[in-house]
Amino acid sequence: MAEKEGFAALVLRLRSEGISDLDLLTAVEQTPRSLFVPASAAEDAYSSRTIPIDCGAFMEGADLAVRLLSRLQVKLGQRVLEIGTGSGFTSAVLGRLAERVLTIDRYRTLVTGAQGRLDKLSMRNVVVRQADGINGMPGEGTFDRILVTGAFTSVPRFYAEQLVSGGMMIAPLMLENGTCLMVRLSKTGSRFEREDLFPVPYLPLTPHIAAAL
C-alpha cells in the first residue's frame, strides 16, 4: 500500500512541474522504488530526499530521478548508456523505455547489488558492468542517449563520438563558483548544442575502478 501511495504522491508533484509523460510514469510505477532503497530508508523511497547507499554513493530523490529521465526523452528502440549505476533504479526504468541499456559503475558492490535487483524484476535488456566511466564506453558502438550522474569540470566533448547524430546526453557540469548544473547536450552532425537545465547535488566523477568496494 505504501508503494501505491508513495507513487501517487510523486505523480502529483511531477504533474505540478509539468511532467505527465504516460510511458515514463508507467515505467516508474512498474519499478518499485522500495526494492532499490536501503531498508532503513523505506519510507523515503518516493520522497524528494537524497538517500545514502553503499560505497559513499547516493540515490537521487524520486522527483529528481524522474525529472532527469523526462529531459532525456528516451524512446522505444533506442540504446542508452548510463554512467553511474548506483542502486539500479534509473537503469530499471530506462530498461522499460529503451531497447537496450548499458549501465556502468566503478564500485563492484553497487554493480552486484543493482544486478540482483534487476534480476528480480527480470530486466533482461539492461547490462550492468563494473567499469571506469570517465571516458564513456569507447568500443561499444554509439548510443541514442547517454545519462551521467557524476559531474564533469568542462563540457565532455569526447562523448560526441559515442552518440548517434541527433542523439542526446544529460550530464552534470561543475561551475567555477562550485555549484553543479545539469546540462543537456544535443548532437547535430559533429557539434554539441548545450542547454542548461537546473542545479543538481552531484559530486565530480572519479576516475578508475574502485579496488576495494
Rank of each mutant, 00 (worst) to 15 (best):
M1S: 09
A2C: 01
E3K: 01
K4L: 06
E5G: 07
F7G: 06
F7M: 06
F7P: 13
A8G: 12
A9C: 05
L12F: 07
R13W: 03
L14F: 08
L14H: 07
L14C: 07
L14D: 09
R15S: 05
G18D: 04
I19R: 00
D21F: 04
L24D: 01
T26F: 08
T26L: 15
A27C: 07
E29T: 00
Q30I: 00
P32F: 12
S34W: 14
L35F: 14
F36E: 05
A39P: 15
A42T: 15
A45Q: 07
Y46E: 05
R49L: 11
T50H: 03
T50N: 06
P52V: 04
P52S: 12
I53H: 07
F58W: 14
G61V: 03
G61R: 03
A62C: 03
A65V: 13
L69M: 15
S70F: 15
L72T: 11
G77V: 10
R79S: 04
V80P: 01
V80Q: 00
L81F: 08
E82K: 13
G84I: 00
G84R: 00
G86P: 00
S87W: 03
F89W: 15
F89S: 01
T90P: 00
S91G: 13
L94T: 08
L94H: 02
G95A: 04
L97Y: 00
R100W: 10
V101I: 12
V101C: 10
V101W: 03
L102T: 15
L102G: 04
R106V: 06
R106M: 10
T109S: 08
T109M: 03
L110K: 08
V111G: 13
T112D: 15
R117C: 04
D119W: 02
D119S: 13
K120Y: 05
L121S: 13
R124L: 05
A131P: 02
D132L: 12
G133P: 09
N135Y: 04
G139C: 12
E140V: 01
E140N: 13
F143Y: 10
R145S: 02
L147I: 14
F152C: 05
F152K: 01
S154I: 12
R157I: 13
Y159G: 13
E161D: 15
Q162M: 11
S165E: 12
S165T: 11
G166A: 05
M169A: 10
I170Y: 03
I170W: 03
L173R: 05
L175K: 07
L175R: 07
E176N: 02
G178A: 10
C180R: 09
C180S: 05
K187I: 06
K187Y: 04
F192T: 09
E193P: 03
R194G: 04
R194F: 06
E195D: 07
V200N: 03
L205T: 07
H208L: 09
H208E: 10
I209H: 06
A210H: 14
A210Q: 07
A211R: 07
A212T: 08
L213T: 06
